[in-house]
Simulated scan of single mutants.
Amino acid sequence: MLSRRKKAIMGIGTLIIFIATILVAAVAAGVLISTSGVLQQRALLAGTEARKRITNSIEVISLLAHGNSTAETLNDFEAYIRLQPGSDPIQMRKFDIQIITEGWDQAATLQHKSMDPSEYEVGQVDNNSWTKVIDIDGDGTEDYVRLFEANSTTNGEAVLYFNLSDAGMSRPIYLGYNLSSTSVRTLKVQDKVILDSDYNGYMLVNISGNASNNTIPASTSFILRNWSEECAFDHLIPETRYCFVVMHGNDDTVLDSGERLKLLYKATPDHALGTGQEFRMIFTSEKGRLSEIRAYTPDVVRTTKVPLWPLN
């Protein structure tokens, strides 16, 4: 009897060990399956990101610039672009342009309402004192604006000057009228760029309403902002910003397959390209392959719009 009981106990022990082995194997298999699933998911994500970096890019259809035949310089660039075949849509808010020449290079980001929709209401401005406004030139110190009377040097128009704490006195913004009399004038200033003496741009001025007695009253809309309602060279902050016009497609900030955009980029007068000059323009999206063109300006500037790319 004792012998039979001992064998039964040994059989139960073996069964317990067998069950434990199965459980350990099951847990190990579960861990392996889970790990392989995670690794597969990571591999798919890595592959997708790698594919995007290889295939996501734009094609430059053409590039032209506006020529000044008297000074023999080129500025105000227009680049026509579309997606490369197989590319995913590109968010233009995360799309940059960089122009590189022998003497300078500069990167530009999108100038668009979706980038910074905020506005600043100035309030009353007159010719008696400087009115404090926000930090325009980005040095952390508030700046000032003042109205100056019309005179012979301003073509008989009242002008605004901004006193920028870091960049100094701005170039004048013309208001279109002599405001020294009691006669009420209706002002309409749309997206005029505040420029310093070197033509570096900062914010845009918008004024709509009445003015007289060298005073723009608080009841008149006087707004500063970083974006323009219209993409145009006259409303574009030079060198650090670009804008786009939808030539074919939806009016949003995403470049989709089949759509074409016209990008506008403006350099300061000191950085306008001369004749026979080599330059590069690089287009970069957040996740994708950069697109680059190398070109030379012509030896002679004879037309208003000068084609620069593709090379003939």
Rank of each mutant, 00 (worst) to 15 (best):
V246Y: 05
T215C: 02
H235C: 13
N214G: 03
M247R: 15
N214S: 11
N226R: 11
V254G: 03
S219H: 06
E239Y: 02
P238V: 12
F222A: 05
L255G: 06
I216G: 02
N213G: 04
A218Y: 04
N214L: 01
A232L: 09
S228Y: 02
V245P: 06
F233K: 06
I237R: 09
T215L: 03
R225V: 09
E229T: 10
C243R: 13
V254L: 11
H235V: 07
A232K: 14
I223E: 05
S228F: 02
N213R: 07
M247G: 14
H235Y: 15
R241M: 14
D251T: 15
D234C: 09
G249E: 03
V246E: 09
E230D: 13
M247Y: 11
G249F: 06
D234L: 08
V254S: 10
F233C: 07
F244V: 06
G249Y: 01
F244I: 12
C243M: 14
F244T: 11
A218G: 08
A218P: 01
N250E: 10
F244D: 09
I237T: 12
I216W: 01
G249W: 01
V245L: 14
P238E: 11
P217C: 04
T220K: 01
H235F: 13
L255A: 10
F222M: 00
I216S: 02
M247C: 03
L255P: 08
N214H: 01
E230V: 15
T240N: 11
D252F: 03
G249Q: 08
S219D: 02
F244N: 11
L224R: 00
N214E: 01
R225P: 00
F233S: 08
R225M: 03
L224F: 15
L224M: 13
N250D: 13
S228R: 04
V246R: 14
V246G: 04
R225N: 15
T240D: 12
P217G: 02
E230A: 07
S219C: 01
S228V: 12
T240L: 05
E239V: 08
P217Y: 03
I237Q: 06
I223V: 15
E230N: 15
A232G: 10
P217M: 06
D251C: 01
V245C: 06
T220M: 05
S219K: 03
S221A: 13
L236S: 11
C243Q: 00
P238D: 07
P238K: 08
I223W: 06
D251E: 11
I216Q: 02
V254I: 14
H248W: 01
F222Q: 07
V246T: 15
V246C: 00
W227E: 05
P217L: 05
T253N: 10
A218C: 01
F233M: 06
L255H: 05
T253G: 09
I216T: 10
A232S: 15
Y242G: 12
W227R: 04
D251P: 00
V246Q: 08
T253E: 15
S221P: 08
E230P: 03
N226K: 11
S221N: 09
L224G: 09
M247V: 11
F244R: 10
R241P: 13
D234Q: 12
D252V: 05
Y242S: 08
N250V: 14
L224D: 12
T240G: 00
C231K: 00
V245R: 13
I237L: 07
A232H: 10
A232R: 12
P217F: 04
T240Y: 03
E229H: 13
L224K: 00
T220R: 05
L236C: 11
N226E: 15
N213C: 03
W227G: 09
